[in-house]
Amino acid sequence: MSVATASTAAPVKVSRLAVFWQSQVGKKFVSAVTGVLLFTFVVGHLLGNMQAFQGAEKFNAYAHFLQNAKAIVWPTRIIMLAALILHATAGIQLWLRSREARPQPYRVPLANPATPSSKTMIWTGLLTLGFLVFHLLDLTLGAAFVHSGFVAGEAYQNLVATFRNFGKVIFYSASIVGIGFHLSHGLYSLWQSLGFRHPLWTPTIMKVALLVGVFLSIAYLTIPAGVVTGLIRL
């Protein structure tokens, strides 16, 4: 079987890793693993941020602790940045490839059972990426054109100032909801990308993923809501 022999050799001729990265299953695997890493950051970041409700002293002390804990912060930053780059690259490349796969669109839209979150992964992903850049400029670096009254080291005061700006409340809230949508599909579909599907567990995973997405959105939304309602104030 000449066809068989020729194609059997093909996957490892170059480098195993390159072939893996080139394949759609490989990219999805990378996307799943890096997605899990990024998810742990979303959870950890929430736990840290919730201290905003405990007042300025506690919150600023936490921020101060992070700034000085270079041995924890820098490795985390490097891992997260690498995960983010891989995750975004895989996602965007897969999306582009999918678009190429149907150059002629349907004139009558397909009757699709897709959930809103699964259809919008690329958009909620790009929104998250944009938000991340803005958020870092706003509350980590304090770039003047994003946050005019930024004071280094005064994390609590900076936070309150950000959410006294109505435009920022809207943008932060929309982005948080976007991340919730992204997670509610991602936390389910990553199992499929890792090769796990089971008639008993998969429906449960789907429900849990949705709940986690909704819960995280609501939990994060309490912070701008806290400032707007005055629960978090100077």
Binding site: V25, R97, E100, R102, G195, R197
Partner: peptide
């Protein structure tokens, strides 16, 4: 294109193939 676990294929399949087979493909590939 690649699979994004939408599930439209399984709905449309006249023979009722399920997404389980895609998971199996991924597992064997990995």
């Amino acid at each position: 294109g690649g699979c994004t676990v939408i599930g439209a294929c399984a709905e449309a399949c006249p023979k009722g193939l399920k997404l389980d087979f895609i998971a199996r493909m991924n597992k064997d590939y990995l």
